[in-house]
């Protein structure tokens, strides 16, 4: 029985809400952490893991699986509950986030986390690794796709643009880059720190097929991933306009929630908001 579009979107909304709750639970266990950039990317991760990507939680290293590189590794508080929801490990483990000898720290470690395809944390590394994965797939006649999630501030790193050139040069239409355009880096707005606009034009000039979407609108995210690759022979870039801190009003669009304390009061407030149906837009 195939799922209707309404059913699909309702299911994804439930997942996205659970993921956001998981972000807050993980960061509450940690005491503090990257709230803003984890919440902004929750919808993209949700669609990837519960609609788009092929993987097998019982066989995390399945060679034909689609790959995800969380190049903005500081959003590991979002990846951690996503992989739990996807069945790679027990959801209770999310509560060990940042605790002594936990598999889950501020940044993902592929040697410790089942389902994690790449260790990241230092910004600007992920796209190069994604290019290698996509090239590896093509050389070995494998059909898997590689998805790389980058921060907008992360695009200040020159290494990203070296990889952007390489992906176009090699015609990697099995590679999908996603930019989490939440408009902030660590200390301020990207356009006040080191401007990156006009961003879509930049990626186009580097040889990528680009689409701009509302990255917190599940329907748009679904349709965009379904449409990739947009152009045969070109790497795909999804410029996902998002709200930093999305889903927790206190944190939304606020630079000081890039990294914040998540005590019991904050956790309760966030969970209450996430469970209130009015917020599930």
């Amino acid at each position: 029985m195939s799922e209707s579009r309404e059913e699909l979107l309702a299911r994804l909304l439930d997942r996205a809400t659970a993921v956001r709750a998981g972000v807050m639970v993980a960061l509450n266990a940690a005491g503090s952490g990257h709230v803003g950039g984890s919440m902004s990317i929750a919808d993209v991760l949700t669609v990837l893991y519960f609609h788009t990507m092929r993987y097998d939680p019982k066989n995390p290293r399945w060679p034909d699986r689609d790959r995800l590189v969380l190049s903005k590794g500081h959003a590991n508080a979002a990846l951690t509950p996503v992989l739990a929801e996807a069945g790679f490990y027990d959801k209770e483990l999310v509560k060990t986030f940042n605790k002594l000898n936990s598999p889950f720290g501020m940044h993902p470690d592929m040697r410790k986390i089942p389902g994690c395809d790449m260790s990241t944390g230092a910004l600007g590394h992920g796209l190069a690794v994604g290019v290698g994965m996509a090239l590896g797939a093509r050389l070995q006649n494998k059909g898997f796709r590689t998805y790389v999630i980058m921060g907008d501030g992360e695009l200040n790193e020159g290494s990203i643009w070296e990889s952007a050139m390489a992906a176009a040069r090699f015609g990697l239409d099995n590679l999908v880059g996603i930019v989490d355009r939440n408009r902030f880096c660590l200390g301020s707005a990207t356009e006040d720190t080191m401007p990156i606009e006009p961003l879509a034009d930049k990626w186009r000039a580097f040889g990528w097929a680009v689409r701009e979407i509302d990255g917190n609108d599940l329907a748009q995210v679904v349709d965009t991933f379904d449409a990739a690759p947009f152009v045969e022979g070109k790497p795909t870039l999804i410029l996902a306009h998002t709200v930093k801190g999305k889903g927790f009003s206190r944190a939304e669009d606020r630079c000081d929630w890039h990294y914040q304390t998540v005590n019991e009061e904050v956790l309760e407030a966030a969970l209450a908001e996430l469970q209130a149906p009015g917020q599930r837009s």
Binding site: M106, H107, D109, S119, G121
Partner: peptide, 9 residues
């Protein structure tokens, strides 16, 4: 110093 940051940090 960024103990929970892991080895990249």
């Amino acid at each position: 110093a960024i103990s929970v940051g892991g080895s990249t940090h």
